[in-house]
């Protein structure tokens, strides 16, 4: 009978990969954003607006994460920026290894800002850091009034929150102001903005807030 001490993290691999991604992005002078949110919350719409509004000032690249399809990547390709699609298969979130493979297929020397669109999911992506600089979460009024209350782990760790589909708040009987209060309780430092992913309303305010990063 013998005791063998191991004292090793079972989560080490993922953490190290994320660190390596961050190192690579820093070396290339790229600021990277992980954009998370539920299925259909408006992640791609927000990214499309951000790209439209920023691409004249900055060189932008994108990694689109999805299970097996390419709808999101194609929507951003319409903006004529380099996009790589990452497929997770049946996995419900991007992981740093997959992201690394994707970003190595981008022209990194020619990119200032990288948007990574995560798989639609408010739970798992929060537990799997990709090695980015900032995290944005998109929630929408059509998800009901409890999204922030129900997912504190996600919302308390992100840098920016966008509440999408604000034009539908009355129809949905959801208060954007209440959602802002819910966020303040767990993450008072994160700016939170109401946006309309179709018209682009509210996106300028988000960009203004992000500007100190850019």
């Amino acid at each position: 009978m013998k005791i063998v001490e191991i004292e090793e993290s079972a989560l080490k691999k993922g953490k190290e990969l994320a660190k390596e991604n961050k190192k690579l992005l820093d070396e290339k002078g790229i600021i990277a954003f992980d954009v998370m949110g539920s299925v259909g919350s408006g992640k791609t719409s927000l990214i499309k607006w951000l790209v439209r509004k920023l691409k004249n000032r900055y060189k932008i690249g994108m990694v689109a994460g999805d299970l097996t399809t390419e709808f999101d990547a194609k929507r951003i390709e319409e903006e004529h920026i380099p996009v790589v699609q990452a497929h997770t298969g049946r996995v419900c979130h991007l992981d740093p290894g997959l992201v690394r493979k994707a970003i190595l297929n981008l022209p990194l020397d020619n990119i200032d800002i990288l948007f990574i669109e995560n798989v639609g999911n408010l739970i798992c992506p929060a537990a799997v850091p990709l090695g980015v600089h900032k995290e944005i979460v998109v929630t929408s009024v059509t998800e009901g009034p409890y999204m922030i209350k129900k997912h504190p782990y996600m919302f308390q760790r992100v840098s920016y929150v966008a509440i999408n589909k604000i034009d539908l708040q009355e129809a949905m009987n959801v208060s954007v102001e209440q959602l802002k209060e819910d966020l303040k309780e767990i993450n008072p430092d994160a700016p939170i903005f109401g946006i309309n992913g179709i018209t682009g309303e509210g996106v300028d305010k988000l960009i203004q807030c992000m500007s100190f990063q850019l």
Binding site: M1, V4, E8, S9
Partner: peptide, 12 residues
């Protein structure tokens, strides 16, 4: 905030 593999006891 971690999951640590502490130790093994083995029959050798």
């Amino acid at each position: 905030d971690d999951c640590i593999i502490k130790s093994l006891e083995i029959e050798d």
